[in-house]
Design a protein around this nucleic acid. Structure first.
Length: 243
DNA sequence: AACCAGGACGTGA
DNA sequence: TCACGTCATGGT
């Protein structure tokens, strides 16, 4: 494990030194703040992995995973705050209240989530995942089970499992691909599952480290992998680049 | 004014 | 399987 030529744990430590704890997944009613964090100014809980603290926070994370598909977190935060004005996220059973709202106030919900984009699609996806969540009745879902929900693909599934359920599933996103393609650790044509397994086999860490690593990868990528050509100015991880 | 943002799905080869 | 078009608002 330590003799792998892929030094993922060293990279993890390097990113942690550079950016410190990211406090993913953000909770909109949490009062913690990280100054100068792009995409949001609050909701993160750095170096505190005891989340979600209740079922409503768990469901809020799940809503967020749908809304953030191909969209910036700032837009999602606006949508979540809009929804929070319609339904109190902190009282009662959020999933049941949300289901009721989805069924009776379609236009109201669509308008609320508009900032996150794709609001017609995401409205349907939210209905699907809400019904699924309620059907679980508190039970932890399996990966294939979550994947079967229309609107939940590989990344969203792993985000739900890792951040909402605290399960040991590595999340791969476009930023992960860009960084580690640039380091020649993976090929840009590799499938999601292949990359996920690559990280799970070569990165030694538990649930907390999986959560943190993904947040760090996103943070680092926002600095050096948002505009083409990706990563040419990435001095921080330069020493880990292969051939 | 293009381009991108914490993707997923349907379609046709 | 896989490449491609579609979904859509908002920031840079």
């Amino acid at each position: 494990m330590g003799k792998s030529r892929y030094k993922l744990n060293e990279i993890y430590e390097k990113l942690l030194d550079a950016y410190s704890y990211q406090g993913w997944w953000p909770i909109i009613n949490y009062k913690g703040e990280i100054p100068n964090k792009k995409g949001s100014i609050k909701g993160y809980h750095p170096n505190d992995y005891d989340f979600p603290r209740d079922n409503n926070e768990q469901f809020e994370i799940i809503i967020g995973t749908i809304l953030t598909q191909n969209t910036s977190w700032l837009s999602v935060e606006k949508s979540l705050n809009n929804l929070n004005k319609i339904i109190d996220f902190t009282e009662g059973n959020l999933s049941l209240k949300f289901k009721e709202l989805l069924e009776t106030e379609e236009d109201l919900v669509k308008n609320a989530i508009k900032p996150a984009g794709y609001y017609n699609q995401k409205f349907v996806y939210l209905k699907n995942i809400t019904d699924f969540y309620i059907s679980l009745d508190g039970r932890k879902p399996g990966r294939s089970e979550v994947l079967s929900v229309k609107g939940v693909g590989n990344e969203t599934a792993d985000s739900i499992l890792l951040y909402a359920y605290g399960m040991h599933e590595f999340v791969v996103d476009t930023y992960t691909r860009r960084i580690f393609v640039n380091l020649n650790y993976i090929d840009k044509k590799d499938s999601y599952i292949k990359i996920k397994k690559f990280f799970q086999h070569n990165f030694n860490g538990g649930v907390n480290e999986y959560q943190e690593f993904h947040g760090l990868i996103v943070e680092h990528a926002k600095h050096y992998y948002s505009k083409k050509p990706y990563g040419v100015d990435d001095k921080l991880l330069e020493e880990y680049k292969l051939n």
